[in-house]
């Protein structure tokens, strides 16, 4: 067979350079793939919230009797403290991640624990607020959307705390985070995501009354 390869020298050399770069990229960057995939997943997940937000806006602007009888609005003071706690926990988990990056495991554990405590405080505050409310999820569209949005977000906060617990546990396995820590990065990204969603949610439900 007359193996005629078009411009063998030039194209092949080019190709080999490309190969060295890309193969390295492809076969040793599984964590990069995971990160890319996780971000794609989070973007997709955010559309669920976006559709809930869109539904909330439509309901709020078109419903004649928005508040159930006896309700005039939502208390904003305690939810605001809650918001501050949740948003600042995003910075705390970032510090934890930096500690892990510098291979300082105890700093990582400490700040991760603080994040978990702040997340738990948020959930506790949410539960307290739910208990004190004079309406339920069957109280018209206002009650339904309120519990849908806060409940669905609360589930995400709970998931975030569970993920953090998992990461904390894994830090006690010897050498677990020596070769990269995609799990921690994903947990952290997820936590930031949950925070950003909450800021939009807080604006929609509590600020816009």
């Amino acid at each position: 067979m007359t193996a005629e390869r078009a411009n063998p020298s030039g194209e092949l050399r080019n190709a080999q350079e490309v190969e060295v770069n890309v193969r390295h990229h492809q076969e040793h960057d599984a964590a990069g793939n995971s990160k890319f995939g996780f971000i794609a997943f989070l973007l997709s997940e955010s559309v669920i919230f976006l559709s809930f937000f869109a539904g909330y806006i439509v309901y709020k602007t078109t419903t004649p009797d928005w508040y159930p009888s006896g309700v005039t609005g939502l208390e904003t003071r305690e939810p605001f403290i809650n918001t501050l706690v949740l948003v600042s926990s995003s910075f705390v988990i970032y510090v934890a991640e930096r500690y892990l990056h510098d291979k300082k495991l105890w700093g990582f554990r400490l700040f991760l624990l603080v994040t978990m405590a702040m997340g738990s405080y948020f959930l506790f505050g949410q539960a307290m607020e739910w208990r004190s409310l004079p309406f339920g999820y069957q109280s018209g569209l206002f009650g339904g959307t309120f519990f849908l949005l806060t409940g669905f977000h609360g589930l995400h906060v709970l998931t975030g705390i569970l993920l953090q617990t998992l990461m904390l546990g894994r830090s006690f396995m010897p050498g677990n985070y020596d070769n990269g820590f995609f799990g921690v990065e994903a947990t952290s990204l997820f936590w930031h995501f949950v925070d950003v969603i909450w800021i939009v949610l807080y604006t929609l439900i509590y600020v816009w009354q």
């Binding site: 559309v47 669920i48 069957q138 339904g144």
Partner: peptide, 29 residues
């Protein structure tokens, strides 16, 4: 797909626990 998921969650809540998102007789849309 997430938009359909959102709608399906609300429909499921309407059927199972009696919220009123899509039920016109309860003020839904």
């Amino acid at each position: 797909l997430p938009a359909l998921t959102g709608g399906a969650v609300m429909l499921l809540l309407d059927i199972t626990i009696g919220t009123s998102f899509f039920a016109p007789e309860r003020g839904g849309n």
